[in-house]
């Protein structure tokens, strides 16, 4: 008999902000995360920061993943983190991926981005890191016991 409860799903929002249309990476990630058992909410291209934050809140995701390819990652990170804070959702960790120069990784982390994945990062590594990030967060917001 199948147990009525398997392990808790990790719910991730995969989003693209602004007008950058390179969605190959975002889609590969979305699929790989699904295959790894995640619940993925995909909001499509051309989202504003406000839309991303609203979606994250309404869907109550565990992690927000932003995939970016046009060089505006600082701008996006700053505004996103600020907006999350203002909306009472500052506890939702944000991770970023895409064509981000290595030199920008540390400054992004310092701003509060939880993790930055550079191109070529194996998906298995991304999955593992997201699982860690989600489990770190569990104590913060305990889920119903099963």
């Amino acid at each position: 008999m199948q147990s009525p409860r398997t392990t808790r799903r990790i719910k991730v929002l995969v989003a693209k902000v602004g007008l950058d249309g390179h969605d190959r990476g975002a889609k590969v990630i979305a699929r790989a995360l699904r295959d790894a058992g995640f619940e993925v909410v995909y909001t499509g291209l051309r989202q504003t920061i406000d839309q991303v934050v609203a979606a994250a809140i309404q869907e109550d995701v565990d992690i927000i993943g932003i995939n970016q390819h046009e060089g505006s990652h600082f701008h996006i990170a700053r505004k996103l983190l600020q907006k999350l804070e203002e909306s009472g959702a500052g506890d939702i960790p944000v991770v970023m991926g895409g064509s981000i120069p290595l030199v920008d990784v540390e400054p992004l982390r310092a701003m509060g981005v939880k993790e930055v994945f550079l191109p070529g990062t194996p998906i298995a590594e991304i999955v593992k890191r997201l699982e860690e990030i989600a489990s770190e967060r569990k104590h913060l917001a305990p889920r119903a016991k099963g």
Binding site: G18, R46, E70, G71, S72, H75
Partner: peptide
Amino acid sequence: PLAEGSIGIV
């Protein structure tokens, strides 16, 4: 609003 931060980049 969607264009914010992207003008002239690519």
